[in-house]
Amino acid sequence: MKIQQRSRIYVFIFSFLVWIALTSITDIQEVIAGLLVAVLVSIVAGKFLITSEKSGHIFKRILSLIHYLFKFLWEMAKANLHVAFIVIHPSLPIKPGIVKIKTNLTKDSAITVLTNSITLTPGTLTVDVNLETKEIYVHWIDVLSTDVDKNTKTIGGKFETLLTEVFE
């Protein structure tokens, strides 16, 4: 109950700030309309932002989040150069297949961020997630091995330690 109220207040402040940024405010009517819309949004969709109490130091988590973002952008630039090389090559050097990897993350939000990062990094695309056995099925454009533990280290290992620090 307490957590839901706090989550609603955060959503209200955030959506009102976004409204102010989008409409460069010139009139009192725009402020009133923004307040009404922000109240409506926080009533309808406010309880989904924070769902449990977080432990750990907040600054440490923000630092590891920034570290994660920079690592993610670097991996993404590498992914794009890789795809560009494959696409311009005359004989298309691909060896595709669907492999299986394991994960240790428990929260839904952490798994979502992990699968999105897998999709946007070199040569891999998430196809399905099995939440009961903690397995992720990944389409790989250039299959190196079919061993589950080895693939877990090469595909998900880069992000998993950082995401554990951020989300858990």
Binding site: M76, N80, A84, V87, P96, I98, L120, G123, L125
Partner: peptide, 13 residues
């Protein structure tokens, strides 16, 4: 699946 890989990564970036 291969088309989805190339298109999603490059066009998003």
């Amino acid at each position: 699946y291969n088309r989805l890989q190339a298109a999603t990564k490059c066009v998003t970036f």
